[in-house]
Write a protein that binds this DNA or RNA. Structure first.
Length: 509
RNA sequence: GGGCCGGUAACUCAGUCGGUAGAGUAUCGGCCUUUUAAGCCGAGAGUCGCAGGUUCGAGUCCUGCCCGGCCCA
């Protein structure tokens, strides 16, 4: 269906606004004056933040003695003309700083050029000494300036900035220009990823890159994106998880590996889901899921101290405390004690189905796995209540096809999921390394494709072969990086922490 | 997929009961040597998301569609 069928040509042919026309005319005039509007021969030696930090505390008299000439470059964010003075603000990657262009400090011709030809939004380079204004603001008294890039579009309103969520996501560059909070958020994202990367490197893990395109989309249950390789004449799937490849590397003998990269799942977009999202997965030979509980506590505690300088953070009105040890609850017990499912109902399909229906939860009647039903009830009734960091253990084996069986109780897996602020943040288990059991589980799974079309359609025989060579006992974990960033930046939506979230195409933008 | 809310100048937003489309910012012209959401005087700027319908008359009411947000599945 052509969703654009009702659109007429006007949607695609937006007339330039009056402001843009004026800018284009200025650009032409600038070139006619013999000035290059896009030169690249200015090297800024200073940065706004550094100047403000170093010279901010000095008095005007002390600044008089600073004979150094400073050079800065950045985007002009404000311009206030006052007769023979022009105040302006220049924004570089570090901060904003005030400029003073004064007749007398620059010659009359240049003053006029700045007044008439330099607009808010232009990138300029300036040289000058620093002064303090009457109100005590550190200011560059401009001796020389140079237009470095002419801007042809007006910036959004200076006071409110760019508010419209749709425009902020579609034109993230404008959002970043206008909103310091957004710039800070993405710096924090990078700091989080770098901390995690350094943590694993320092623990002796090898960072690796495994394929993004898989012949079989395994390692999770989710609908994949499909693509086609012309030369190989085959379908490929964008990966839904790197798990099966990272385990091959454990077979290969690396013992400790991790990967931080994108996964792709062909599902709806919402405040919780983006079709591509960033996942950390790590695998550790000779470790168990119990070891990973300790590692996870250590990782988050250290991360919180690094980012927040204390072991707690504020998320949507909740104070989250990462001081170990964290709470642990049993999956089945939580269904009985927190969700209030009577024990005799839990194991009776008919009673359970009706119980769920009363709670407004529709279970997939065709799915024979009662464990899948329990998981659904857990997601609905328990997940939102797990605010403080909580490890949930004792997951049914039916919903853990890659996890090791518990030796005392073969119906449950040696697995945990970590919940924080009502969201699943991590999933980990002692890995199944018995190739016979793994084959059996895959075969059972495949039979269920009729009732669950997210199950991979094909058994990854090469993965099984790798297991037959022998994978050392190990444990592995996946952590959703976007959700971690949401927590640390108090963001209610995943789209706030992704630079370019996916939106429907809009031709006339 | 369903419910609710929104889309008006480049941006942020008003727009009453259906009766000529508004403000601020930005832009343009003028004044101003310490401003900082500068100020003052003046000017220009609109496919009211799109397409139909009702009406003498629609930004406003009705229908369908597009885009976004929030909630639910």
């Amino acid at each position: 269906m052509d969703k654009n069928k009702n659109r007429n040509k006007g949607d695609f042919m937006q007339e330039d606004s009056q402001v843009i026309k004026v800018r284009r005319e200025k650009l032409k005039k600038i070139e006619e004056m013999g000035v290059n509007p896009y030169p690249n021969d200015f090297k800024p030696l200073d940065r706004a933040k550094y100047i403000k930090e170093k010279y901010g505390p000095l008095t005007s008299e002390e600044l008089e003695k600073v004979k150094v000439e400073f050079s800065l470059a950045g985007r002009l964010m404000a311009k206030r003309e006052m007769g023979k003075l022009i105040f302006a603000h220049l924004q570089d990657a570090t901060d904003k700083i005030q400029l003073l262009v004064a007749k007398g400090e620059v010659d009359a011709e240049n003053f006029k050029f700045f007044k008439k030809m330099i607009d808010i939004g232009d990138i300029i380079g300036v040289k000058g000494r620093i002064i303090k204004t009457k109100t005590g603001e550190i200011t560059i008294l401009v001796k020389e300036f140079k237009l470095l890039t002419k801007s042809l579009r007006p910036l959004p309103e200076k006071y409110h900035g760019l508010r419209d969520t749709e425009l902020r996501y579609r034109m993230r560059y404008l959002d970043l220009i206008m909103n310091e909070r957004v710039r800070e958020l993405f710096r924090t994202r990078t700091r989080i990823v770098q901390y995690i990367r350094n943590y694993f490197i320092s623990e002796g893990f090898l960072e690796v890159e495994t394929p993004m395109m898989h012949p079989i989309a395994g390692g999770a249950t989710a609908r994949p994106f499909i693509t086609y390789h012309n030369a190989l004449e085959m379908n490929l799937y964008l990966r839904i998880a790197p798990e099966l490849y990272l385990k091959r590397l454990i077979v290969g003998g690396f013992e400790r590996v991790f990967e931080i990269n994108r996964n792709f799942r062909n599902e709806g977009v919402s405040t919780r889901h983006n079709p591509e999202f960033t996942m950390l997965e790590f695998y550790e030979a000779y470790a168990t899921y119990e070891d990973l509980i300790k590692r996870t506590e250590e990782l988050f505690y250290g991360l919180c101290m690094e980012i927040k300088g204390k072991p707690t953070l504020e998320y949507q009105g909740h104070t989250i405390d990462f001081t170990p040890p964290w709470k642990r609850i049993d999956f089945m017990k939580s269904l009985i004690e927190i969700a209030g499912v009577p024990e005799e109902v839990l194991y009776d399909r008919e009673k359970l189905f009706n119980f769920a229906r009363e709670k407004g939860i529709e279970l997939n009647q065709k799915d024979p796995r009662i464990g899948k039903w329990w998981t659904k009830l857990f997601e609905e009734l328990i997940e939102p209540k797990l605010i403080q960091p909580t490890f949930v253990v004792g997951f049914p084996i039916e919903v853990s096809p890659l996890a090791r069986r518990n030796e005392a109780n073969p119906e449950i897996a040696d697995r945990f999921e970590l919940y924080i602020a009502g969201k699943e943040v991590a999933n980990a288990f002692s890995e199944l390394n018995d190739p016979r059991d793994q084959r059996q589980r895959f075969e059972e799974q495949i039979k269920l494709r009729e009732v669950d079309d997210e199950i991979p359609p094909e058994i990854d025989e090469d993965f099984l072969r790798a297991l037959e060579y022998g994978m050392p006992p190990c444990a592995g974990e996946g952590i959703g990086i976007d959700r971690v960033v949401m927590l640390f930046t108090d963001s209610p939506s995943i789209r706030e922490v992704i630079l370019f979230p996916h939106l429907r195409r809009k031709e006339d933008l």
